[in-house]
Design a protein around this nucleic acid. Sequence first.
DNA 1: GATGAAACAATTTAGTT
DNA 2: AACTAAATTGTTTCATC
Lengths: 159, 159
Amino acid sequence: MISGTDIFLDKTDLAILRLMQANARITNADLARELDMAPSAVLERVKKLEQRDVILQYTARLNPAAVNQKLLAFISIKSSEGMGSNHTALELAKVPEVQEVHHIAGEDCYLVKVRTADSASLMALMRMTLSRIPNIISTRTTIVLETVKEEQQLVIPEK
Amino acid sequence: MISGTDIFLDKTDLAILRLMQANARITNADLARELDMAPSAVLERVKKLEQRDVILQYTARLNPAAVNQKLLAFISIKSSEGMGSNHTALELAKVPEVQEVHHIAGEDCYLVKVRTADSASLMALMRMTLSRIPNIISTRTTIVLETVKEEQQLVIPEK
DNA sequence: GATGAAACAATTTAGTT
DNA sequence: AACTAAATTGTTTCATC
């Protein structure tokens, strides 16, 4: 769960976030040099950003093709469960190949992003895993032919 | 550009990827302890994984709400350019608020993932930035009401 | 490819302002 | 919240197998 209490970030915090978003393996010493601060002061700020759930994770972005995950698809899923329940979404979220589950406005359904080795393994996933989740009424699968950009970088405000 | 030459990853490489995907700030010494190897051997492998573009980036995943990016939307964009050209996609990719641009099958259009502060700033972005990109025929915007899962973690094969 | 050793650098804690 | 100082730990190179 993500902190609901309000979060105040000053110029220094935002600079730390900008640097760590661009390179999570930057040393604390290099961060301190960039910010013209003592390493101990920077370390304390980083720990607080982690505690406050401003920084959620440090992760290596991998080339999907290198680890045999060449197929990317988006699936629109309609569920018969009433509003207020999101059991279907939670079940979808448990599937490791499912990277994203969003509840979307308008069409009253979920948008799911899935990555598998190829179209055969996507079919297998849909038959074996998705079809076992209750309340799914329909699915519409869109295959990605080519990805031109895929980053999670957020635009960090100036202040 | 991502390496086109084929990539062979052994069990040790895959273990490194699994560990660094989960925590990009793991120390090289800790990696070496997990793998029962000398730190120097692990360091050499990590450098090769970076060089071969298996590891694309180390990044901190940030809480979008903490940096005032509360709105997430997917936009389907139809372009009049012929197949073979992807000028529109490249222009879309240049926009910092655009996190993803995928060319999708079937409807002959792009699927774009965008993050902004709120719906007013999304409107402003569409009017000021997207409307200046040539060849865009139509857009259909879907607003995300709630995100249940959003990770980029890939399923790393066993071997 | 992997190792061990060694020089150098970073991390992290504690005490102080 | 920030600093300095100091002890511990990690990084990285290089010679060797």
